[in-house]
């Protein structure tokens, strides 16, 4: 690992003052960044430690639940307010990584984690995300773990987070601090599709800091489920995952939220499928129809083409669990 300058500015303002310099990276839990630095994928000159900033609180606001960017994944997953109000988030968090990593990883860091694409990680391989213009190793390569939605010829990497899939489904907002003050972004718009600039994972601009997320209140807590399909039962990234949340009254779906992981460069919200469920009975048939609708526009690249079949199967299964049909 390259040497770097280690900084620990005392306040959020002091952090904002230093992070807009090129070659500067923020470190919180470090579970992804240190890994990337060890592999020479990330080579910061300056590392800004923000762990001491007061951004760990989980609180109820007028409109929802606020979670500080530095709240640990483990803490959020065990928090009573989260369990009561947003169980889908807790389920997704518990499906990710390992207990040790969840004790280190923060909510903000989880959002900022980079793809696990093997070509991205190996500095001898072509990767447009790591070195723009170098090509995409996965496009015609071993792309079993890769995207079926929203990919480009430049990049078919997927975002690896479970937490983010649930936050996308739950209409969360990202709260971002910058030199000019705070701004809010719908969670579904925070991460980007690769297009011609796969090196950019999200909408955060230089000098900005995620300070928290806010999840609006909803009626999903009774009928939520996070289903993650992976190559082993735990401690593995998703082949496909689905966050499903239903608001059911008298057997009829009032509202539905669906998002997928392991299928796109960002948590993949399934708006059409959600709409198709509204006003319908919570039945297996309806779930399967919605799942098929969700797959419109999906594209396989060879090794990952199984996701075209696994995807809808997982959506339907997750909805069944959410509705209590399993």
């Amino acid at each position: 690992m390259k040497q770097f300058q280690y900084l620990r500015p005392a306040t959020q303002q002091a952090v904002l003052d230093v992070i807009n310099k090129p070659g500067t990276k923020i470190i919180a839990g470090g579970t992804n960044l240190v890994d990337l630095m060890k592999r020479g994928v990330a080579t910061p000159d300056k590392l800004v430690d923000i762990n001491h900033l007061p951004l760990k609180n989980i609180t109820i606001t007028k409109t929802g639940l606020h979670i500080g960017a530095l709240a640990l994944n483990s803490v959020v997953s065990e928090n009573d307010l989260v369990a009561k109000k947003q169980p889908l988030l807790a389920m997704a968090l518990k499906a990710g990584a390992s207990p040790q990593l969840r004790n280190m990883a923060t909510v903000g860091g989880n959002m900022m984690q980079r793809t696990r694409c093997g070509y991205f990680y190996d500095t001898t391989m072509p990767c447009n995300k790591r070195v723009p213009g170098s090509g995409c190793g996965a496009y015609e390569g071993v792309n079993r773990m890769h995207a079926i939605f929203g990919g480009s010829e430049q990049c078919i990497a997927v975002h690896p987070s479970d937490m983010c899939v649930s936050l996308a489904a739950l209409d969360a907002e990202v709260i971002i601090a910058g030199k000019k003050g705070e701004r809010r972004l719908p969670f579904t718009e925070f991460h980007r599709l690769p297009g011609d600039h796969p090196e950019m994972d999200n909408q955060l601009t230089a000098g900005e800091l995620i300070i928290g997320v806010e999840i609006p209140d909803n009626n999903f807590s009774k009928n939520s489920y996070y289903l993650k399909v992976r190559d082993r039962q735990s401690y593995a990234f998703a082949l496909v995952s689905v966050a499903a949340a239903l608001d059911i009254e008298n057997g009829i779906i009032q509202h539905a939220r669906l998002a997928m992981g392991g299928v796109a460069h960002k948590p993949w919200r399934l708006f059409d499928a959600e709409r198709s469920l509204i006003g319908k009975p919570a039945s297996e048939d309806n779930f399967k129809q919605a799942a098929q609708l969700a797959m419109q526009g999906a594209k396989g690249y060879g090794y990952n083409s199984f996701k075209l079949k696994l995807g809808p199967a997982t959506i339907a299964e997750a909805l069944k669990h959410a509705a209590g049909l399993v």
Partner: peptide, 9 residues
């Protein structure tokens, strides 16, 4: 990845 002859996992 046989194009490169290199392990990817």
């Amino acid at each position: 990845d046989h194009r490169y002859g290199r392990y990817i996992n």
